[in-house]
Design a protein around this nucleic acid. Structure first.
Lengths: 203, 203, 203, 203
DNA sequence: GATGAATGAGGTTTCATTCAT
DNA sequence: TATGAATGAAACCTCATTCAT
């Protein structure tokens, strides 16, 4: 097995193990056994358990960012972009239950020093740039970036978790509906029209 | 010290310790020291560490449920209820950072067998009943209950976390705005009526 | 077993184990077994293996210092004091082979941050004070304190190690002889006589 | 790189590593990295880590023995030889701090089965022979060889360690003084003769 | 009720040595 | 010769839980 394969197999084993036994229940011995490796060799590829968990989180995040931003998201008309991000986020997490579970557990663990702003990912930064442009253009409400992130991405992620848990089954129509609910109100249009109306009524 | 006080002091110590050192960093010894008790005596009040953590979670959940449902939430006109729930949720968590941290860490830990449907809380059940009545009355969109829960409560909780972390400072105006964004679109029929009215007015 | 006894039994077990298997060969498991304790309980009494080793070293050093300085060493005429220190040092170490072995191994290990000057022991400081007084009085050669320490104490310790190893058996006469060799030349007398003679020759 | 060079580079790397991180902190991996070799290849040159350490110790000892015995030590008048050995010992160790540190650490480690008598070094044996001859000739005190070794060589080594540690700076005059202190009293008969002569001269 | 010493399985990590390439 | 990935036993240390007092 070539070196990079072995390294990845450790990450894969970690992901599977966390999905099965949780972050706390994921010991180096279990990772090693699942990766069909010895406990010692893991330290040839990673400095510590922390580094494995951190690397895996970043890998998942990068994969997620690539999935929502590529392809051609930024080529869409801005009106369609936000629903599209919501839907892609939902589909990514719904399609990857293990990664979803890991993502959520890691973020809320003592292992994480996760800071949204500190994520250095080119796709995500491109998306943030596009959102800022939309705000500057007056297309969408001038809310702080973390708020927008929460309204769209956390919302979609939480729905995906409902789907994964079996609590809810989302069909295409319901997804579109919820995506609309989550995103539509970000768009300035109606607000402007309403405030225009209010103003004209006041005149 | 009377029995119930000591029992509560153990829960309080656990909350403070988790806020300080995380769920993983909270050992029975640290809980005991913070509660000014011996490790041994804790087992007279709780069967296990799991039971402490579970009890504490339920206590926080009950407090949260009481805070959002009481007083008189159910007496409000249904149109105001959803924004009010969103705002009360935000204010509860924003005002209790330790409880917020605990709530989130516990839900995403191996300790939790948290299941939304399994929560047996009278306030929350009353609220669920009211929502179901609103759905039956055609006031709000007929979405699955966990979806509605996520759209309102998870949304508000996530915003509270942003406020706690210092990432965003929400003033009253912005809170109202976001509450509107989160809730307005649930009120499907009236929205449709309104938009119909708007359209006819524009014609 | 009362607490202080258990604590001392851990130190005793450590001493015996180091004597038998060396510092490197002394694991926490072996210490525990020899102290008839569980590995875990050791950490109730000491924060780490380092702390055990450090405490034991200080204990041996304190015992040694007490043995050479008490009783009445400082009441002796200064002419007799140095030989007496040499002899007491020899006898202390020769009588305690385990402590001798430990003392030497620890000083030359990665565990030690041993610094002669940093030793804060009242007996040893009293002795140092007496030596400084003798120097000030012109009784003995004005050599740096570590040099005097080496000439007397290291010398006696090394001889004790020879005795312990069986390489040499020292009888009382030989000990006196060597003590004289080690200490006599520190005494200024002859030098004064010589220098006095030189001075009178110059007059 | 030719074989003997690589072998020596491993020994050099070991010496440097022990100086930097101590005997315990010197792993095969660190030796390999410092020697710019792979861990595996080291086992073509040495059977084990023990063999490396043992070989290095012997190499240092041989170098030391050559430094004090050559050149022409044995050609000196016997009266001068002992001080000369003391001074050469001091200068050798003071000039080689890494070797001094290694020598001391190794002797007091579990790796060493160091036994003075077992050293099979031609220079050292020649010196021992000369000392025995001096004893037989009645020039110096008939003390056991290890005692004489300790009085001279251990003494000088310990002073070198003081110099290396910076605790004491020895100038030439002080060195001569201390060498005299260490050695003069070994020269028993002549000293008695001298003192007898002095006494008779004074009468 | 209350203490806190005691247990011991199991956690992460290290490292001398081996071996397929 | 040479590499460096691989092994696996064993190191130090933790901690939920128990129990004699």
């Amino acid at each position: 097995m070539i070196s990079s394969e072995r390294r990845q197999s450790i990450l894969d084993a970690t992901l599977a193990q966390v999905a099965e036994t949780g972050l706390t229940g994921t010991t180096m011995a279990l990772i090693a056994k699942r990766a069909e490796a010895s406990p010692g060799i893991i330290y040839h590829y990673f400095a510590s358990k922390d580094e494995i968990l951190h690397t895996l989180f970043n890998q998942i995040f990068d994969e997620f960012a690539a999935a929502i931003v590529s392809p051609e998201l930024l080529d869409l008309p801005w009106q369609d972009r936000y629903c599209e991000v919501w839907l892609r986020t939902f589909h990514f997490f719904a399609a990857h239950p293990h990664k979803t579970a890991y993502y959520e557990q890691y973020k809320n663990s003592a292992y994480a020093d996760y800071n949204f702003d500190a994520i250095d990912n080119e796709h995500m930064m491109a998306l943030v740039g596009a959102v800022q442009a939309d705000i500057a253009a007056g297309h969408i409400l001038a809310l702080p970036m973390p708020v927008i992130h929460t309204l769209i991405i956390s919302s979609a992620l939480n729905m995906a978790k409902l789907q994964i848990s079996g609590a809810v089954h989302f069909d295409a129509a319901m997804l579109d509906k919820i995506a609309q609910i989550a995103c539509q109100s970000l768009i300035v249009q109606s607000a402007e029209v309403q405030s225009a109306e209010v103003q004209s009524a006041e005149e």
